[in-house]
Design a protein around this nucleic acid. Structure first.
Lengths: 352, 352
DNA sequence: GCAATTTACGGGCACGTGCCCGTAAAGGTA
DNA sequence: TACCTTTACGGGCACGTGCCCGTAAATTGC
């Protein structure tokens, strides 16, 4: 029951190379002060033994603390969606705090690009080893990425992606496919003579996320030659009154709407409207496992919720940094989350 | 960027109590050799400082290696379902090997209770610190549990549960609810004038798992007053010929079957039959993300697969032992897995 | 040629905990 | 009192790696 196969350590390498452990250490961390010849010799032995550093000892001996910054939208009363990733981040932090990893959190206002850039500035003025963020604003994120690349600070996007900025990883949904799944569920029992309504409720104008989802949604309809007409509406105010007003109008114009698809977590507002206006026969599908939505799932107003495990996203984001910064393991560039389908019957076991 | 808040360690406790670190250590591991008085004093300080041992240092210093045994059905050509938990177990092992944890694997034959008890004997004759197993045979598992409880070896069940045996944890699906979800999906676009077929294909006679699933399935029908008649069939041979013969008979007797529900991963055999006999209009739902099933999902023969993340089950099983044996963290007694819904549209992102 | 500088390397302590071994003090027995 | 056993504790090495500091050897400058 004793440890025996504890493989080879720095000592063994040093012994074989006839040098001290300090020299081996210099090679391992490619610091200066080793002649080309011995360096070569040591590297050969390292390869031969397939040396794996003992993380336990390494982290214990090291006085350095690794700092990861996160930058997410704050949890407003408007939506508590971002609470989930935060929980995952906290969970990851608790697990690896012992290993000398520290997470510092910054939050910005989804209605203010300035607050985003300001927080970016704050993060970059401290010295952090990695940044996990939601790239909510495209132009601002591009600038951020340029700065990080120059300063060689790795960053990871969660929840939505902006390609070609050389992020270390993207962790989040494949939005197009997610919309595609939404369409499948919506049409599964849809009558062919009814119309389908796509609803986008959002203050931001350049929400290219929603566009991807809608593309996927429409793409299913054309792939399957679904005969249903698709109506769409953009609502730029998020309060119930405004949404109700717009919806009343749409439903007035289109008497035969059989199903509605909401491109984000505000589906509960629509559910509320449908319930109040006695239109619960309309199939309703939307996004995210937030409290209000689950309530309407429970009461059969929402048929399905699509989720992308936001908590897991946060957890994985931090863990990906741990992997790359501490254990030096490679990180997958694209880590698409599962597209989960949540119903009244299975929601109680769902893990966000 | 230096470590600073590294809280208090054994040294600080020793200093405050005017004893050596060895004495503190004795108290921490409640070994003998400490007078009641100093023990009390030290314990008070430990509480006061809310001392958390440094796992890194602890694992590094300890020469003990923790051994976890797993006992699962072997991966036969008949079903590769158990490959998934095994993958999860391997993943967990790789993560915590560095921390002095070792996993040794045992496999039994699902068609032989003797192979189960024989492997139990083998496991118990070595000295292991925890056992992760699938309790496939009820009586044999009860005996096993009694032995473990006597010898104070913790064990965890995955995939299916036998209550009241004082397992440390159960990690797996809520089978009743899982059947319930199956019924919801099946009826979502079912015509009321068709019959529904429940198919159970399994060699084992006492498969109480399947009974739970069926209960849940039927329970949905009665809860919702679904008018459809339910037909059921038990098939004790698993080869295609036998299954096809039985199904031909059933479909002959019941001309108006609109949907079929298979209670386990052998749904691909049924799919094959439906395809060959040109009955693909029948909705088909079954279990598990195994290769053959995904193939039929892809070709629209299977409508939905229900999955319980078997890989995750294996991973969590091992990690639960790590938590309880290494970090002393509490483990939840019941850890129900999500009931995942997999379709042609989202399967490529599914994580088993 | 010699001093000054640079290069290449070794010694050894530290991280926080586990645990072996040694020993003074206390208690027991004749 | 002398001797033995038990109790209660301290000293100190080890785990494998990080890294500071010291120094002999090699190189450079004049």
């Amino acid at each position: 029951m004793e440890k025996e196969n504890t493989s080879f350590g720095v000592k063994e390498i040093a012994r074989r190379a006839n040098v001290s452990t300090a020299t081996v250490d210099r090679v391992l961390h490619n610091r200066t002060g080793v002649s080309e010849k011995t360096k070569q010799r040591i590297n050969d032995i390292i390869k031969e033994l397939d040396y794996q550093p003992n993380i336990l000892a390494s982290r214990l001996a090291s006085r350095k603390i690794i700092t990861i910054a996160i930058l997410l939208p704050n949890v407003s009363e408007e939506t508590d969606f971002w609470e989930a990733p935060l929980l995952g981040i906290r969970r990851a932090e608790a697990e690896i705090r012992q290993y000398g990893v520290q997470v510092i959190s910054y939050f910005f206002d989804l209605n203010s690009k300035e607050s985003f850039t300001e927080n970016v500035r704050l993060i970059l003025q401290g010295d952090v080893h990695g940044i996990l963020l939601s790239p909510s604003f495209i132009e601002e994120t591009k600038q951020f990425a340029a700065e990080c690349n120059e300063r060689k600070i790795p960053f990871i996007f969660i929840d939505s992606d902006i390609p070609d900025l050389h992020s270390l990883s993207y962790i989040g949904p494949h939005l197009f496919k997610s919309g595609y799944v939404g369409a499948k569920l919506l049409t599964y029992r849809l009558q062919s003579n009814t119309k389908v309504l796509i609803i986008n409720i959002s203050k931001e104008v350049d929400n290219f996320n929603y566009l991807r989802i809608e593309e996927g949604f429409r793409s299913y309809f054309s792939d399957k030659n679904q005969p249903n007409e698709i109506v769409r509406i953009d609502i730029r105010e998020t309060d119930y009154q405004s949404v109700a007003r717009h919806l009343t109008y749409v439903f007035h114009l289109n008497k035969d709407i059989g199903a509605a698809f909401v491109t984000n977590s505000r589906v509960h507002t629509v559910a509320s409207f449908l319930k109040n206006s006695h239109r619960t026969h309309v199939s309703l599908i939307g996004y995210d496992f937030v409290k209000e939505n689950v309530g309407y799932l429970e009461s059969d107003v929402i048929d399905f919720l699509i989720c992308h495990r936001p908590e897991e996203q946060g957890y994985r984001g931090v863990m990906a940094f741990y992997q790359t910064l501490v254990t030096n393991a490679p990180v997958t560039r694209l880590s698409y989350m599962p597209i989960d389908i949540v119903t009244k019957e299975n929601y109680e076991f769902y893990q966000n």
